[in-house]
């Protein structure tokens, strides 16, 4: 099941980072963790992940800022961003839709949904 796809999980809640990490590692993904947007942004630049899973409400740099900043990077090297968010307003939905390769999953999420998203994107890429 080992593959070389890199997934970066950014969340301020340790439990959530841990459970996503476990689930994805079991499917053979390489998983890296970050506590906040600032850490996440640095890792995106150095690690060049295939998928980024990020929370919205985070200290230091929130998920929104992170998405805005990385949208430009995606033009050079595309990757999937999964935004995990508590609530989604119509304006936020519009905002996510105009970003490249970005989907959102509402909290509380099912790990299966996240895995499906990641699998789909990485599988499509492989084809």
């Amino acid at each position: 099941m080992e593959n070389n796809k890199q997934v970066l999980v950014i969340d301020d809640e340790a439990h959530i980072r841990r459970v996503i990490e476990l689930k994805l590692k079991k499917r053979g993904y390489q998983v890296t963790l970050a506590k906040n947007g600032e850490e996440g942004l640095k890792l995106i630049q150095t690690l060049q992940p295939d998928v980024v899973i990020t929370d919205i409400m985070m200290p230091k740099m929130d998920g929104k800022t992170l998405c805005e900043r990385t949208n430009e990077l995606k033009k050079i090297r595309p990757f999937l961003t999964i935004v995990v968010t508590a609530r989604i307003s119509p304006t936020e939905r519009d905002w996510i839709e105009q970003l490249q390769d970005t989907v959102f999953i509402e909290k509380p999420f099912s790990l299966q949904t996240i895995l499906k998203c990641v699998d789909q994107y990485c599988g499509n890429q492989a084809q």
Partner: peptide, 12 residues
């Protein structure tokens, strides 16, 4: 946040 943790841990 705690609900998400509970749900995902339970799922595992």
């Amino acid at each position: 946040t705690p609900l998400t943790t509970i749900k995902s841990y339970n799922e595992m």
